[in-house]
Amino acid sequence: MSVTNLTDSDFDSAISGDTPVLVDFWAPWCGPCKAIGPVVEELAGEYDGKAVVAKMNVDENPATPGKFGIRAIPTLIVFRGGKAVDQVTGAVGKAQIAALIDKAL
């Protein structure tokens, strides 16, 4: 499965389920965000059926990042059952992102 693009309007319903959802908060002006983009795409394929991998453009969707106090990107948050379980900020390696999802499985 490919990466789901979330918006402020569909965010709450997207993270409400029991399946972990990794959300990559990004913006087009952020170099490190562009750099981890392909890694996030890969993870979407690798976790197909186990977890949802999604991203949200913080420029187009200001409400959700505001709600979670995000003041740095890329920030990756894993949600489960409507709640933020764990998060990491910065262009971290694939293994570290995968570990974040694994903990929530």
């Binding site: 913006a27 952020c30 170099g31 490190p32 995000i70 003041r71 740095a72 900020t89 910065g90």
Partner: peptide, 17 residues
């Protein structure tokens, strides 16, 4: 507070301020 106002990357986080 890293990621909640503490940053090490101006290009990544500048526009939040």
């Amino acid at each position: 507070l890293t990621g909640r106002g503490v940053s090490y990357c101006a290009t990544c986080d500048g526009p939040f301020f």
